[in-house]
């Protein structure tokens, strides 16, 4: 079941557009937030009913965009390290390796306590402050080993 808050957000999103289908991205985002970072089949079934879409259309929309984690639960903190050109030039690979060592997981994995998921992404639009990463909604820029340690320590 979608949370009441998610349903309210969908109601609000529907007011932005002349058709219901347009609200699908907002709806999926609300559903993902409500579930704590990922989407399941049931969410899409429910969204399909609200937006008068076929379930497969909701599924197809969700699966096109990389930020929807379909059937892939993520940890409390989803760490996404940029590895595209500007970050790579400034040592992104080094940061990623350091992260893997510190968290004792490989890229794409979640720590045993479900606290951290480590992913790599292709350019987050923060190239002048490379290397950088995004943890949940927040950007962390100009990274080096010490700064990464400090940020991780600050996460409860």
């Amino acid at each position: 079941m979608l949370s009441e808050e998610a349903k309210k957000e969908i109601e609000k999103a529907l007011r932005k557009y002349p058709n219901k289908r347009s609200a699908v991205m907002d709806a999926l985002r609300s559903a993902q937030k409500a579930r704590g970072g990922h989407l399941e089949k049931a969410d899409m079934d429910e969204i399909a009913v609200i937006l008068e879409m076929q379930a497969v259309e909701v599924n197809a929309a969700a699966a096109f965009y990389t930020m929807y984690n379909i059937d892939k639960p993520v940890g409390k903190y989803h760490i996404q390290v940029c590895r595209n050109i500007s970050c790579s030039l400034m040592g992104a690979e080094h940061i990623i390796k350091h992260m893997e060592r510190t968290l004792n997981i490989k890229t794409g994995e979640t720590t045993g306590d479900k606290k951290f998921t480590l992913s790599t992404v292709e350019c987050l639009g923060s190239c002048g402050t490379a290397p950088m990463m995004q943890i949940n909604d927040d950007f962390h820029e100009n990274l080096d080993e010490a700064k990464v340690e400090e940020i991780l320590k600050g996460l409860e």
Binding site: R21, S22, M25, A61, Y65, T66
Partner: peptide, 19 residues
């Protein structure tokens, strides 16, 4: 958006707004 570079292409952007 939610993670798709192609949405910067103007007609893809329109498709995306249309759900």
């Amino acid at each position: 958006g939610y993670g798709a570079y192609i949405c910067g292409e103007e007609t893809a952007l329109l498709e995306s707004i249309e759900g």
